[in-house]
Design a protein around this nucleic acid. Structure first.
Length: 269
DNA sequence: TAGGCCATCTGGTCCT
DNA sequence: AGGACCAGATGGCCTA
């Protein structure tokens, strides 16, 4: 990455010498020059604007004095001092950002896919993935059970870009399509989808789920779970709703596989 | 070629 | 006064 406006040690020493030489050099530099010196954008247009500013300030000299601290005259020595301060500030800022990047690199080492050899996670994706990862780990701690790989990958992929989703899917060795919102149930051979039920948390008898199955006996459900539906039926209803262009109230993250969580935790889902 | 990501510079603000 | 932090601007690189 190119580094601009970096002074050599000799140049820094020269600036420091000039800054220390304030008593010997009291020649004034105009404020307009101050605006321009050291600025990469000091092009012709800026110079023209500066000239107008200078003319404007000359007119203001006849007007009453303004309040506030008197502006110091800008000598060449003071100019050198200011420039040195800017150079130092730039160095500190660079160092600060490098520290931030090092911290992000360390974070990448602790998140899934963070050390991919094919694609480096961007900063924002690293933070999002870390957030999701913390959420999944918390859920595991709470439930005491390990989720299946698709649920795990889906949870990790919330809010991530398609590229990162693909990376997650690749790492988990699952079909990336199974992470796409409108691809439910996932198009992959999963014993969970094939054999188990899904439970949705916020629906009740008063506000039944669109896939509520009243024929299922509550006694056969895990403790706390009220309604269940098998994936095949859910797929059929979902497809039909899509064909009718009905608003589909399927929020996948709210569906849980009872076998993935302890029964005692079902009630608070 | 447009858009995303990044490093860097810069000036402003807050704090010590 | 000077350092830390922040956000905007800018330009380079890369990829779809």
């Amino acid at each position: 990455m190119p580094i601009r406006c970096v002074l050599t040690p000799d140049e820094v020493r020269e600036l420091e010498r000039m800054a220390d030489d304030e008593k010997e050099d009291q020649s004034e530099v105009s404020d307009v020059e101050e605006d321009l010196v050291g600025t990469p954008l000091a092009n012709e247009r800026d110079k023209l604007r500066a000239k107008k500013q200078l003319e404007s300030r000359e007119r203001e000299e006849d007007s009453p004095k303004k309040r506030g601290p008197k502006k110091k005259k800008l000598t060449r020595a003071r100019l050198a001092k200011l420039r040195l301060r800017r150079v130092k500030a730039n160095t500190r800022e660079r160092s600060r950002m490098h520290g931030l990047n090092e911290a992000l690199d360390e974070l990448r080492e602790h998140v899934p896919c963070g050390q991919s050899s094919t694609q480096k996670l961007s900063k924002i994706e690293t933070l999002r993935l870390a957030r999701n990862y913390i959420g999944v780990l918390s859920e595991i701690l709470r439930s005491g059970k390990k989720p299946d790989s698709v649920y795990f990958a889906r949870s990790l992929s919330k809010g991530l870009s398609q590229n990162t989703m693909n990376l997650v899917a690749g790492t988990m060795q699952i079909n990336p399509r199974s992470l796409v919102a409108h691809d439910f149930p996932p198009q992959y051979p999963s014993p969970y989808c094939a054999q188990n039920y899904l439970v949705k948390k916020e629906y009740s008898q008063e506000t039944p789920s669109p896939v509520w199955r009243p024929d299922v006996q509550e006694a056969s459900l895990p403790a706390g779970a009220k309604y269940i539906v098998n994936p095949a039926e859910m797929q059929a209803r979902f497809t039909a709703a899509m064909q009718r262009c009905d608003p589909v109230d399927f929020e996948y993250d709210n569906w849980f596989d009872p076998d993935c969580v302890q029964q005692s935790s079902i009630s608070i889902m």
